[in-house]
């Protein structure tokens, strides 16, 4: 079954699916360009399956309603579990995003947007997330680890980012590393050094070394550990 949804109207469709699942007769004849018969047919399929999984990606999280689409999808999965077994899994956009989230979560309790300025972890996307901090120009130095904010972040944030010194731990040639003041090229995990990556469904995978790293490239972990040592020395700890 193929359902074509009008752009930016995902929330409305999820909302209608949940209402139909509750057994409500809706007034609307079509929702987000999808006729009511198709929605009823879809709900029927969802209810009758033995084990269902909703996979979602950036098509849902980066359009209008953003995280609220997922809020609604979570509610849908919760309700579907009254009828059958259902799961929800995010499809991550880049390599090992799940890994960063996992490690943050078992260290601090939060997956991202963590602030340590008061010496305990605080979580508040919209206040402590990197885009918001850059948009409000509340930073004075930036450490980028294995990421490319210059090509992914909004223009305003990138403009503010380039005002300040940037340190990039990055083996590739990217817009961020081109403008970085200091580049620390690490060894590739899984090729030039050992490491662990998390699969999209949060299963950790051990990565093995295949060949030696060129010159004196260090693994990311060692670079960060040595930086931390120097910072502690400077702070007198």
């Amino acid at each position: 079954m193929y359902i074509k949804v009008k752009p930016n109207e995902d929330y409305e469709l999820l909302n209608a699916i949940r209402a139909v699942l509750r057994g409500v007769e809706l007034d609307a004849k079509e929702v987000s360009g999808v006729p009511m018969e198709s929605i009823k047919e879809l709900v029927d399929i969802l209810k009758k399956c033995h084990f269902g999984v909703i996979f979602f990606g950036m098509g849902l999280t980066q359009t209008l309603s953003h995280h609220r689409n997922i809020d609604s999808a979570i509610c849908l999965v919760r309700e579907l579990n009254d009828h059958t077994k259902f799961l929800l899994t995010p499809m991550r956009g880049h390599y090992n995003v799940a890994g960063a989230n996992q490690v943050f979560t078992w260290n601090t309790g939060y997956a991202y947007s963590i602030d340590f300025s008061r010496e305990y972890a605080r979580y508040n996307p919209g206040e402590f997330s990197s885009v918001d901090l850059l948009m409000k120009d509340e930073v004075d130095a930036i450490l980028v680890v294995a990421s490319d904010p210059a090509s992914n972040f909004p223009a305003g944030a990138v403009k503010n980012m380039f005002k300040h010194p940037i340190i990039a731990i990055e083996p590739h040639h990217t817009p961020t590393s081109v403008y970085a003041d200091v580049i620390l090229p690490p060894a590739f995990a899984g090729i030039e050094c050992e490491g662990t990556a998390y699969r999209m469904d949060k299963v950790p995978l051990r990565l093995r070394k295949v060949k030696d790293a060129p010159d004196d490239c260090l693994p990311d972990k060692e670079i960060l550990e040595r930086l931390l040592e120097k910072v502690k020395e400077k702070m007198g700890e």
């Binding site: 909302n15 209608a16 949940r18 209402a19 007034d27 609307a28 929702v31």
Partner: peptide, 8 residues
Amino acid sequence: RLLPSFKK
């Protein structure tokens, strides 16, 4: 835009 799950 009114949500479809509201009924008059």
